[in-house]
């Protein structure tokens, strides 16, 4: 088992004909994902390696039974692409696109919530359930099927963590990059709720970073409601205040958001926080082993 995506996922790719879209679609297919359709407005009737391309999501869903979407549309057009996916009734939308204006996301996120569509991202590496399905840009081969859930706000840092888990013999049920933007579709808590219900997830690794208060909220949720062990890490102990560290959402503001505050809150919530990233695999082995 896994959360969000599995062997039954029928993936649709928005922006499939673009450079990024076509490259990563092929990577997902090579991993074993069922990519059943592509959508690029105006390019309906074309195809990519035998995957049919449609003008609208409505048409793609009718014809192929797609039930999840992966978005590679450039930032000016991505908000519209996300809404089209939600409006078509797809249960899951994963948006990889970086650089979407915050105002657009402030409108899109409530819209998707009204449609009961789970949005992952934007500005994220996507989702993978190792051995079953990959809806994202992460390197599939570093993952291993297993029972540890991973939730993270970043990309390569997640790969580093997953790699350590795999090297330590700990496979993963599902790994989710929720995104590095200030306004994202799903929070740590949203994902923790799903992992709590998943019988095959035995523990979770939570990778946070500076900015916002999502880690603190997650820590409270874990303390009060979460039944499985959690190992945590927070990047940015040395980040100066007031500077955006690469991710739009990674900024320490006057109202907090420092790594030290997050680590303290996570420890209070009973999370096994690792301060030296190099020791995460070892710590996870001890906690989950």
């Amino acid at each position: 088992m896994s959360i969000l995506i599995d062997k039954d996922t029928r993936l649709l790719v928005q922006g499939i004909t673009g450079r990024e879209g076509s490259f990563h679609t092929r990577q997902c297919v090579a991993y074993g994902t069922h990519v059943v359709a592509g959508v690029t407005p105006g390019k309906g009737g074309q195809g990519l390696d035998g995957i049919p391309v449609f003008n609208t999501i409505g048409e793609a869903v009718d014809r192929t039974g797609a039930n999840a979407s992966l978005i590679f549309v450039p930032s000016p057009f991505a908000p519209d692409a996300i809404m089209e996916s939600g409006a078509a009734g797809l249960g899951l939308t994963v948006c990889i696109t970086e650089g979407i204006p915050i105002k657009d996301m402030l409108k899109v996120v409530p819209f998707l919530k009204r449609k009961n569509c789970c949005l992952i991202g934007p500005n994220c590496p996507g989702v993978i359930s190792p051995g079953r399905c990959k809806a994202g840009i992460m390197p599939g081969q570093i993952h291993k099927e297993g029972s540890v859930g991973v939730i993270s706000r970043s990309g390569t840092l997640t790969y580093e963590v997953v790699h350590q888990l795999t090297q330590s013999g700990l496979g993963q049920s599902t790994c989710i990059g929720i995104g590095g933007d200030p306004i994202i579709g799903s929070s740590f808590v949203d994902m923790l709720k799903l992992f709590d219900q998943d019988p095959d997830t035995e523990g979770v690794v939570l990778i946070g970073e500076i900015g916002g208060h999502d880690e603190e909220t997650a820590a409270e949720y874990i303390r009060d409601h979460f039944s499985k062990p959690v190992v945590g890490f927070v990047a940015g102990l040395t980040a100066p205040p007031g500077k955006r560290m690469g991710h739009a959402g990674a900024i320490i503001s006057g109202s907090g958001g420092t790594a030290a505050e997050k680590i303290a809150a996570m420890r209070k919530g009973g999370i096994h926080v690792v301060e030296h990233l190099g020791e995460l695999g070892k710590e996870a082995s001890e906690v989950f082993g």
Binding site: S154, T156, L237, H276
Partner: peptide, 14 residues
């Protein structure tokens, strides 16, 4: 990657 870059800054300090 930004997250790994922040973690690497922290590693320098450690």
């Amino acid at each position: 990657g930004a997250g790994l870059a922040m973690a690497t800054m922290d590693l320098i300090k450690q």
